Computed example of a mutant assay.
Amino acid sequence: MAEEKNNVVEKENLPDKNNKFFLDLLPGKLIDIQLNNPIQMRFKLPLIGYDIGKYLVLKYPSQAGKHSYTDVLKEGNGAIVRYVVEDERGECIAFSTTILAISFRPERLIFLDYPKKIESRQLRETSRLKTHIPAKISLHEEYEPDSKGLLHGLIIDISPTGCRFTIHVSSGFLALKRRQVFMHIISPIDSKPVVISSYIRNNQMKDSNLHVGIEFDAQEHAKLQELLEAFSISGD
């Protein structure tokens, strides 16, 4: 990661509990762990928890038997940990660590040394502005105001390349897989719907809301610029 423009955040031995680092690391979050000795291997493992300033605990790979990967998954071996923060930040967090211990009872767990320094890399080319714009998404381009296939929600941040869309789960929703969808946004100028071809890139549950990461089709750039200007949002 040395060649990338990263923001490096130094951590003290006992970091502030209010640091965003801890808010990102919730139990169950998938963590990418890369081990390089004696061969390079990567696993995506759920986080079990951590003790601030001491260690992080990951679940042992489910595909590994008790005697599998023992040459790479062993005490003292170095590892690189990465995880993605979606939300408005759109960051990839990474840090180097060391395997402190492997536990086999009562559960198979991996204990990692707590990071003393982390690096963050922005995933988005353009920053997003916070908004509160009502919108709808559907699987079809045709706009039908009363269609049951429309999902009603709010655009809570936006840029010319994408947005974050939030839906109350109680309103019901489609299986939001990575696929093409169409965003329907009412223009503030003539109150007509503007339909934007888009793609679902990720979704995340927070409390009773589903947050959906949307990428706009590159061919919709001119239409989006007009719409952002109508909402008095700069596309620069």
Rank of each mutant, 00 (worst) to 15 (best):
62 S>F: 15
63 Q>C: 05
63 Q>I: 14
65 G>Q: 12
66 K>C: 12
66 K>F: 15
68 S>K: 11
69 Y>N: 14
69 Y>E: 15
70 T>R: 14
71 D>Q: 13
71 D>H: 10
71 D>A: 09
71 D>F: 10
73 L>F: 12
73 L>W: 11
73 L>T: 07
75 E>G: 00
75 E>Q: 13
76 G>K: 12
76 G>P: 11
76 G>N: 05
77 N>R: 11
78 G>M: 10
79 A>I: 11
79 A>M: 10
80 I>G: 00
80 I>H: 05
82 R>K: 12
82 R>C: 06
82 R>W: 04
83 Y>I: 06
83 Y>V: 08
84 V>Y: 04
84 V>H: 03
84 V>T: 12
84 V>D: 04
85 V>T: 05
85 V>E: 06
85 V>W: 03
87 D>A: 02
88 E>W: 01
88 E>G: 03
89 R>L: 05
90 G>L: 03
90 G>Y: 02
90 G>D: 02
91 E>G: 01
91 E>M: 14
91 E>A: 00
92 C>M: 14
92 C>H: 07
92 C>D: 06
92 C>Y: 06
93 I>Y: 05
93 I>V: 15
94 A>M: 11
94 A>T: 13
94 A>D: 04
94 A>Q: 14
96 S>C: 05
96 S>M: 05
96 S>D: 09
98 T>H: 01
98 T>M: 07
98 T>N: 04
99 I>E: 02
99 I>V: 14
100 L>W: 10
100 L>C: 09
101 A>D: 13
102 I>Q: 09
102 I>A: 08
102 I>E: 01
104 F>D: 11
105 R>V: 08
106 P>F: 01
106 P>N: 01
106 P>I: 00
108 R>Q: 11
110 I>Y: 05
110 I>D: 02
111 F>I: 10
111 F>L: 15
113 D>I: 04
114 Y>D: 08
114 Y>E: 07
115 P>I: 15
116 K>Y: 12
116 K>E: 12
116 K>C: 07
116 K>F: 13
117 K>R: 13
118 I>L: 09
118 I>V: 12
118 I>E: 00
118 I>P: 00
118 I>F: 13
119 E>T: 14
119 E>A: 08
120 S>V: 15
120 S>Y: 10
120 S>T: 15
121 R>D: 04
121 R>W: 11
122 Q>D: 10
122 Q>V: 08
122 Q>T: 09
122 Q>I: 08
123 L>V: 07
124 R>I: 03
124 R>N: 07
126 T>A: 02
126 T>Y: 04
126 T>I: 02
126 T>R: 10
127 S>Q: 11
127 S>G: 01
127 S>A: 07
128 R>V: 01
129 L>D: 00
129 L>P: 01
129 L>R: 04
130 K>L: 06
130 K>I: 07
130 K>E: 03
130 K>Y: 06
130 K>M: 05
131 T>I: 03
132 H>G: 00
